[in-house]
């Protein structure tokens, strides 16, 4: 309930600001309301299939089962699994944090876990299609190509830097 309140707090704040604007200056309030409705209708035109895809993926892709098989030494399989799961998962990046912690605890390769976070943040299949619609194909291809390549490289680097340091005091 508290979480629900927090979700709506921002919207309520914005709506009261809009109302206040309308009371102070009806003309500006009208302008803001029209602009808002326009962006909402733009969004609603593309969002339904995005969420339909999210629902379908969630039901048909057995994420937990696949994650359990992501052990150490998974090799190229590990990368592909991570790529697959990251693009097919739903939710904001902080929803992936607890999952990443579980993966690390279960002995998944740290580089794979960091790559998973990168893929999760920037390359979700339904959002990729949505992004193509809003920003154009070239923009989206650049975003994906550069992000995935660099995230993979940086995940190896993070593993080397962060984990060698953690191991040193113990060894």
């Amino acid at each position: 309930m508290k979480a629900v309140m927090r979700q709506y707090r921002f919207l309520l704040l914005m709506l009261s600001l809009l109302l206040l604007t309308w009371l102070v200056s009806p003309q500006s309030g009208r302008g803001a309301a029209v602009a808002t409705l326009k962006s909402i209708s733009d969004m609603l035109a593309l969002l339904p299939p995005v969420f339909l895809l999210i629902g379908l993926i969630d039901v048909w892709v057995p994420k937990e089962t696949i994650l359990k098989q992501l052990g150490d030494g998974a090799g190229i399989w590990g990368i592909l699994t991570v790529l697959f799961l990251g693009t097919l998962s739903a939710g904001p990046l902080y929803a992936a944090f607890p999952l990443a912690v579980i993966l690390l605890e279960k002995g998944a390769r740290p580089a794979n876990v960091y790559f998973f976070l990168g893929v999760w943040s920037s390359a979700k299949l339904p959002v990729i299609m949505y992004e193509t619609g809003v920003m154009g194909t070239t923009f989206t291809v650049l975003h994906l190509g550069i992000s995935l390549t660099l995230y993979y490289f940086f995940s190896l680097l993070t593993e080397r830097l962060a984990h060698s340091l953690q191991l040193q005091p113990e060894g």
């Binding site: 979700q7 709506y8 921002f10 919207l11 704040l13 914005m14 709506l15 600001l17 809009l18 604007t21 500006s28 302008g31 803001a32 309301a33 029209v34 602009a35 808002t36 409705l37 962006s39 909402i40 969004m43």
Partner: peptide, 19 residues
Amino acid sequence: QILPTVLGMMVLVGLVTTF
């Protein structure tokens, strides 16, 4: 789940673009 945040952002953008 995302609707309240998105709608809030839309109102914010509407207000910002007006002022």
